[in-house]
Design a protein around this nucleic acid. Structure first.
Length: 801
RNA sequence: GCGGGUGUGGCGGAAUGGCAGACGCGCUGGCCUUAGGAGCCAGUUCCUAACAGAGUAUGGGUUCAAGUCCCUUCGCCCGCACCA
């Protein structure tokens, strides 16, 4: 019989559906295992070959765990709010709801064709009112606890999406999604206080199993730095507060710099002799985009405030104050003390403006460049700090500042609060009413969900308001608290809202009383293994950790962290090694691969393609090798030879393969697991066939990777029940050892010959056997043997002179 | 600049300090075939007719033994980037 993947794949997909084979139970005596992949955004382009890499990898884990006796939850859903859908809807005059429905249907049928063992009865969709009811509920809880607030501030504005962006969504000055130019805009926005969780987001990274690159990226993004906040008095009376990580260099502070937006400048305007010049510089700075302002190689610019000077608290020296855009209003206090001797930026600025540069740590040459790498240096020109190490000086000066009441130690984070409003239609409405008397009022919980109104026109407006703002009967409401005329918030939530808690909903997807029952959450959480893309490290992954911690604080979830283990797959590139994209013309469509080779071949190939964590180029030639392998597994069913159990000559090979495949699946080494299975097939083929029991083991080991063909061969071979309900084989370590082993013999570390000896041979016997080998005997000849080593089972090395 | 990776055949890639190149692709030769983008067998790091050599980006070191550990230099990828 021929291997016909199209036929058997359809057959088994239907059976799994009909029999609910992969449904997880919230009540089970088995140990639980929660495997999670990032749910996709159902785009109009359909599934990309990159999606199955992640989905198959965790499908392998999920299927393997089921065979190992776990109660496995492996769910799937749709992260369906978002701009592309809205833009498509605008362009084609179809409601986003319809677009979403169509895209979801297409994605779902594509995913089903891959034979992924999702529990489809738990499917969720973030755009479903019964889902976003709870997204809104969480927002209200955040609001009630002061973690959601509205603030007028400079925001990142994507001029193409006509929408604000979070800091995390700006990539080198451009919009993360569309690449459009990002400019600064003053707007009143809903914000979430993620900064309040900064320290816990750092601390708890040590309690979870994340790849180093993910951990490092999050730490860096949160950007904790310790130092001191110091107050400098000024001749104008108002002090300037600065943050510094180097309080030890205070004696070297020869000028100060404030961000152009700093509020003191306005206050001092009447005392400044060069107000015009200052105003001009401020205007220039606001006009610049973020990208221009943060260009690194850029020359330092600035204006000195003429008329106000600061006083260095350690020596009473009067120093000038500048404004410059190299100081950011949004970090620290928006002002710095400049120590040009020991900070590169300050040094450049000082050189340009002819300011004093004082060496306060010995060791560098401050005439040539700032001496920044000076943590081990000794203090000089620093009064009572002279002679101390940098570390001692830090401590002494901080204590001194505290005693004098002019400063104290301080921790700062680069992380900013999360800009949470979007001026768009296709998102969750923010459930807040703005009442002239009561201020912002959350709508009562029993009125959730606050549904998106049906509208004719959902195009963004030029003035930066949400399309919802023009729907008068929706906007104008009475205040839920006092009944007065009030207005609804018309912005919607960002794309990241729904995905910040979706993994909780899977545990109890139809609950209309709670986002999920406490019981279901405590049973399933934390997620045991979460795989997803690196691109979400400082977005979704960080956001969802924040929300989870908040839900932990209000006693909705029972674990401080949502994911016990995170892994990250590499991208699948086009055949030319470049990122797949329509414009490059190197896109591979998974549907066509399934049609030509079958889903099992696609799955196997994507797992075999290379190191799971690294990017790998697609190869339409290599995939044929995977199909060939499956053909050989198929025809092996017609080559069953008599015999019971494992044969003596295959026993070690099988036990070793069971061990290798089991371990490799745990360690993301899918490629070598498959290589081991290929090698096992070669072994039995060389022996002329396979016994029934051997074939059974081989099929189970292969089942997580290629579920359809193994299910079919299982049935054809007449084994009991379904392979998906069978048991994962166990290996016996003592049986992994071959009876006879080949050992290499080295002379002075170079391999000169090999001998085959019993595995349990003793050192002296092994060495005598080695010396008896003619090549070795010849090589030793009359030389003096200095040393003889036998590393059991591995190598013999004879050192001669 | 900072952080995280990474460098091995023609290609994707294997190798708890112990036989470098597993497994697959491709390629070469053969068998089978009317035919082959099918199948089977053999071979395939480089140099060599063969023996012998050389070989894991670079230069050094540790070791009986180094792709693997330590130091140097170089290249590439990803993230962050005037964060005081």
């Amino acid at each position: 019989m021929m291997y016909n993947p199209t036929e058997i794949e359809k057959k088994w997909q239907k059976i799994w559906d009909d029999e609910n084979t992969f449904a997880a139970s919230n009540n089970s005596d088995k140990p639980k295992f929660y495997a999670l992949v990032e749910f996709p955004y159902p785009s109009g382009q359909g599934l990309h070959v990159g999606h199955p890499r992640s989905y198959t990898a965790l499908d392998v884990v999920a299927r393997c765990r089921r065979l190992q006796g776990y109660n496995v939850l492996y769910p799937m859903g749709w992260d369906a709010f978002g701009l592309p859908t809205e833009n498509y809807a605008i362009k084609n005059h179809i409601h986003p709801e319809i677009v979403t429905k169509n895209n979801v249907a297409r994605f779902k049928s594509q995913l089903k064709s891959l034979g992924l063992s999702f529990d489809w009865s738990r499917e969720v969709n973030t755009t479903d009112p019964s889902y976003y009811k709870w997204t809104q509920w969480i927002f209200i809880k955040l609001f009630e606890r002061g973690l959601a607030y509205k603030k007028k501030m400079a925001v990142n504005w994507c001029s193409s999406c006509k929408c604000v962006l979070a800091n995390e969504e700006v990539v080198s000055g451009a919009c993360e999604r569309c690449g459009g130019e990002v400019v600064r805009k003053e707007k009143s926005q809903w914000m979430l206080k993620i900064t309040e969780y900064a320290q816990r987001l750092i601390d708890d990274l040590s309690t979870v199993d994340y790849p180093e690159r993910v951990r490092a990226q999050q730490l860096h993004w949160i950007g904790r730095s310790t130092g001191a906040q110091v107050r400098f008095d000024t001749t104008a009376g108002d002090p300037i507060e600065v943050f510094t990580t180097r309080p030890d260099t205070l004696f070297g502070a020869t000028y100060m710099v404030m961000a152009p937006e700093h509020s003191l400048i306005e206050k001092w305007s009447h005392q400044l002799k060069n107000v015009e010049e200052v105003r001009a510089y401020q205007a220039e700075a606001t006009k610049k985009s973020d990208f221009e302002r943060t260009e690194v190689a850029k020359d330092k610019t600035g204006v000195m405030l003429d008329g106000v000077r600061a006083i260095n608290p350690v020596n009473g020296r009067e120093i000038p104050i500048f404004i410059s855009d190299y100081v950011l209003a949004s970090y620290g206090t928006g002002a710095i003390m400049a120590v040009p001797g020991h900070d590169t930026r300050d040094w450049e600025f000082a050189k340009k403006f002819g300011l004093d540069i004082i060496e306060v740590v010995k060791g560098g040459n401050i005439e040539v460049e700032a001496f920044t790498d000076c943590e081990t240096g000794i203090m000089v020109n620093s009064g009572f700090l002279d002679g101390l190490s940098v570390e001692e000086a830090k401590e002494k000066i901080t204590n001194w500042l505290k005693e004098k009441g002019i400063g104290e130690s301080k921790v700062n984070y680069k992380l900013r609060d999360w800009v949470f409003s979007r001026q768009r239609y296709w998102g969750e409405p923010i459930p807040i009413v703005d009442c002239p008397k009561c201020g912002f009022v959350a709508i009562p919980e029993d009125q959730l969900p606050l549904r998106l109104p049906r509208v004719e026109n959902y195009e963004p407006t030029e003035n930066g308001e949400s399309p919802l703002a023009s729907i008068h009967d929706w906007v104008n409401v009475s205040c839920p608290k006092c009944g007065a005329d009030a207005k609804r918030e018309t912005d919607t939530m960002p794309q990241w809202a729904g995905s910040s808690w979706y993994f909780l909903r899977y545990t109890d997807p139809n609950n209309d009383k709670e986002l999920a029952s406490k019981q279901a959450i405590s049973y399933w959480l934390p997620v045991d293994w979460y795989n997803g893309g690196m691109e979400h490290t400082t977005l979704h992954l960080l956001y969802s950790r924040f929300w989870h911690k908040f839900l932990y604080d209000i006693n909705v979830v029972s674990t401080p962290e949502p994911y016990a283990k995170r892994t990250s797959h590499g991208m699948i590139l086009g055949e030319n090694g470049e990122k797949m994209s329509k414009s490059r013309g190197n896109v591979v469509n998974p549907d066509e691969i399934v049609k030509e080779y079958g889903a099992d071949t696609l799955r196997l190939y994507e797992m075999f393609i290379g190191d799971f964590e690294k990017a790998a180029p697609w190869s339409s030639a290599s995939i044929r090798g995977c199909r060939r392998f499956l053909e050989r597994v198929w025809s092996l069913s017609e080559n069953i030879i008599p015999g019971d159990g494992l044969r003596p000559q295959t026993e070690a090979a099988f036990h070793k393969t069971i061990k290798k495949v089991s371990e490799d699946i745990e360690n993301l080494k899918y490629n070598t697991a498959i290589a081991a299975l290929m090698a096992l097939l070669n072994t039995v083929t060389d022996l002329g066939g396979i016994t029934r029991q051997e074939y059974r083991v081989m099929l189970i080991l292969l089942n997580p990777f290629t579920p359809h063909i193994t299910e079919e061969l299982w049935e054809l071979s007449g084994y009991d029940g379904r392979i998906s309900e069978s048991q994962w084989p166990e290996y016996d370590a003592s049986k992994c050892i071959e009876q006879m082993i080949e050992i290499a013999i080295q002379i002075n570390g170079k391999v000169r010959s090999r001998i085959t000896v019993p595995a349990d041979i003793q050192q002296n016997e092994a060495i005598s056997a080695a010396k008896a080998d003619p090549k070795i005997a010849h090589a030793i000849n009359e030389k003096k043997i200095v040393r003889e080593l036998y590393i059991p089972g591995k190598i013999i090395n004879i050192v001669v002179k």
